Amino acid sequence: MGFLTDTTHFHILTWVVGIVLFLVSASMASGTKGKKIAHMILRLFYILIIVSGAALFFTHMGLNSMLYGIKFVLGLFTIGFMEMTLVRGNKGKNTGLMWILFIVFLLATLFVGFKLPLGFDFLA
C-alpha cells in the first residue's frame, strides 16, 4: 500500500478526476442516464479520495497534526457539498448556495493541502 502513502500523487489524481466528474455530471441534463452513470462513478471516486486521504492522514499526521486534521475535515466538507449540489440539482432545487460553499471549501482545502509538508509549495 506504499502507493497510497509514499507520495501524494494518487490522492491528487483521485481528487482531480473527482472534480472533473463532478463538473461533467453537474453540466448534464437532469434525469438522463449519462448523468446517473457519471454520478455513480463520482461516488466511487469519493471513496477513493477518502481512502487515499485517510491513508496519508494516518501515515503523516505526526508531521503537523492540526493542519492534517483541518485538511481532512475540509476535504470531507468539500465532498459533502459536491454531493449536495448534484442531489439538489436532480431534485430541481436551487443549488446556488451549494455551489458557493463547494467553491469556498474546495479553495480552503487546496490552500491547506498545499501548505502541508507533503504538499507542493506553489500556493503558500
Rank of each mutant, 00 (worst) to 15 (best):
G2C: 07
G2N: 12
L4F: 06
L4Q: 00
T5L: 03
T5D: 07
D6V: 05
T8Q: 05
H9T: 14
F10N: 13
I12P: 04
I12T: 08
V16F: 07
V17M: 12
I19S: 15
V20L: 09
L21D: 11
L21A: 14
F22Y: 12
F22Q: 09
S25P: 01
A26M: 08
S27R: 00
S30R: 10
G31Y: 04
G31D: 08
T32S: 12
K33T: 12
K33M: 10
G34H: 07
K35F: 06
K35E: 08
I37C: 03
M40L: 12
M40E: 13
M40S: 15
L42V: 12
L42R: 11
F45L: 06
Y46Q: 09
I47S: 14
I49F: 03
V51A: 13
S52I: 02
G53H: 00
G53S: 02
A55G: 10
L56T: 01
L56D: 00
F58P: 00
M61N: 09
N64C: 01
N64M: 01
S65L: 13
L67D: 06
Y68V: 09
G69T: 06
I70F: 07
V73P: 08
L74V: 12
G75C: 03
L76S: 13
T78Y: 13
I79F: 06
G80R: 07
G80A: 12
G80T: 08
G80Y: 11
E83W: 15
M84R: 15
K91Q: 14
K93P: 03
N94K: 15
W99F: 04
I100V: 13
I100T: 11
F102Q: 08
V104W: 02
L107G: 10
T109Q: 07
L110Q: 05
F111Y: 07
V112L: 05
F114P: 05
K115A: 15
L116D: 08
P117G: 14
L118P: 07
F120Y: 05
